[in-house]
Write a protein that binds this DNA or RNA. Structure first.
Lengths: 342, 342
DNA sequence: AGCTAGCGTTGAAGCGTTTCGACGGTGTCA
DNA sequence: TGACACCGTCGAAACGCTTCAACGCTAGCT
């Protein structure tokens, strides 16, 4: 193993000088810097992470707490996790993965052991047990999702309210009057998942403003449940010409069921999905969809926490900041003008 | 911050005793152990990760290198990542996430800095650049996937050869004679992804033994490419009655296309998928599928590397061990006896 | 009785960094 | 010309933990 002392010897300077060259925390002459850098190269020196963490009291690690749940669309989580990891590396941080099932104790463990300098929490519930722990430990954190009480913490999330409104507007613009909103399974609403509630609220408000009649129905995302949901919708509101689908699992079944029931998309009914573009492209017809960038979500989360870590030892007192990412509507082949009344 | 010295003072012992109680590396009297444990509780002591890593030369961290690529089914990767994380915790390890784009340098960085004690590499290619680095650094590692030259490393993977054979056997048992194998996009084969090649080989060999005629066609997994692939298959071999699908994205389109072309599943054609059970259940009809457990893959990978880390300082020389996980066939509604010849 | 073996505990020596205070040298200003 | 500030470098003191050698005991053996 090559240590800082080896580098110092090789470059003919003291080890503190090497440290300062690497950290840039003190002025070092051009000449010395050059020599040290080259020694580092030649010897293949990488500072020992443990020693660094111990001396500097910073591990340069960010912990990312991911949900175990599988009732949300998994690729999105993965995309966020990867975006977080690459963004973190660009700021000199590594990412430690921990699972939600460690719960508040996990947060305590990570914070108290100094394993990570800060945390990013995914799948935050409105009233989350981990938040008080964060405050008690004085740990820096960013929440992905909005919590009830985020004083002193930073949050980032998609603007689901805007996403819901975009759907309502698009269908209203096309002349549709009766819409069905196919949501997630009832469990998601019962645990007050913010994204589900906020999308629905955004849709509902805008639908009201635009004079749309609409129905909200839960759906587990299997073929059977989608069939049941659709049957009930058509029984209750035979005049429905627009569908908003939030549960990714229900999209395929819905399209198949509409087709077998003799309804053509988009001539007879329009379908708009709340899902990733990649997924929307996979269906036939390609789906008009409202999307937020998971990549950006991860990137912003990292920037928030890195910002906090940087200012928190300058004595700067970071305010609670919350970022809402604007979703985009991409019109494809699954939506069209409402059919003329018979 | 609570240190080991605080605990020692509180319990009226020396800090080394506290350390031994916690690590269990020396005999400690029942009485002392009790007192120390209770002090740990009361004070809420968590050993400082950096100091621990520095003194013991072990970080108790395993690095998991995940692919950025999205051409394989993403939820599986996530499932593995989570399985690795939970399994690692059970052995007292945390998991550091790094992305494939760091490449061999990433491996060097992690190994040389002592950030992680060992690595788990996903998406290993047959001739992987990271493997020589691993050997040069003398770092413990487990590969998920099989490499050309895995001397001194451990590997774990699904037995894709057996999976392919299971598909062939099942269709042969049902009396099918002409089969189409719908694979991944050509890019996957060009970069010699082991799982794709091995599945195909397993299928091909067994199909040969069982006297099946078959066609292998690549497919990108979009609706259009599936339509093109299917059209070519039906043109070349109109008598095809069995389909094996490996590309998850092609499943939905294939079922839709078969239906619109007037073919009923499973009466006219049988479809067997190589995918997770969860996904297979989502279609109508539910798909007969061959599956390997992603959870187990993650768990075994962790056990291999933890085993190596344990024996590697006992001077034990761990052999290269490779584990192949047996896949299972679950018969559902999408396969049935071959139709009688007209 | 004398010797060895093991038990439970301790003090102290690292582990490889960062960072503080200090030092000589150089330039600037009065 | 003297005082002062700043620059580039260094030595040494942490940082909080693990682990080794050593200690005084008691117990078991010859």
């Amino acid at each position: 193993m090559v240590t800082i002392a080896d580098v110092a010897r090789h470059a003919g300077v003291s080890s503190s000088t090497v440290s300062y060259v690497l950290s840039g925390k003190r002025a070092i002459s051009e000449e010395t810097r050059r020599r040290v850098r080259s020694s580092v190269q030649v010897l293949g020196y990488h500072p020992n992470a443990g020693a660094r963490a111990l001396a500097a009291r910073r591990s340069h690690i960010i912990a990312l707490m991911v949900p175990l749940r599988t009732d949300v669309y998994v690729p999105v989580m993965m995309e966020i996790a990867i975006a977080v990891t690459t963004a973190a590396r660009q700021h000199g941080y590594d990412v430690l993965l921990i699972t939600n099932d460690e719960g508040p104790d996990g947060v305590r463990r990570i914070a108290a052991s100094g394993l990570a300098d800060g945390l990013i929490l995914m799948d935050v519930e409105l009233d989350d047990e981990r938040i008080p722990v964060l405050r008690a430990q004085g740990t820096q954190a960013t929440l992905i999702g909005l919590a009830d009480d985020a004083r002193g913490l930073s949050c980032v999330d998609h603007d689901f309210v805007a996403a819901g409104a975009l759907c309502a507007d698009h269908l209203a613009d096309l002349g549709h009057r009766e819409i069905a909103f196919i949501g997630y399974g009832s469990g998601v609403y019962h645990r007050h998942a913010g994204y589900a509630e906020r999308t629905l609220a955004g849709f509902r408000d805008r639908a009201g403003q635009r004079g749309l009649r609409f129905l909200h129905r839960t759906c587990e995302g299997t073929y059977e449940s989608t069939a049941g949901t659709l049957a009930r919708v058509l029984a209750d509101r035979p005049g429905t010409t627009g569908f908003v689908v939030q549960n990714e699992g229900a999209i395929g079944p819905l399209l198949t069921l509409l087709r077998t029931s003799g309804r053509t998309v988009p001539e007879d009914v329009s379908v708009i999905a709340l899902c990733q573009d990649q997924l929307a492209e996979q269906f036939a017809p390609r789906l008009t969809a409202v999307t937020g960038s998971a990549q950006e979500l991860g990137r912003v989360a990292v920037e928030q926490i890195v910002g906090r870590l940087a200012t928190s030892n300058d004595g700067g007192r970071p305010d609670d900041d919350r970022a809402l990412l604007t979703p985009t509507l991409t019109v494809r082949e699954s939506t069209g003008p409402a059919p003329l009344l018979p």
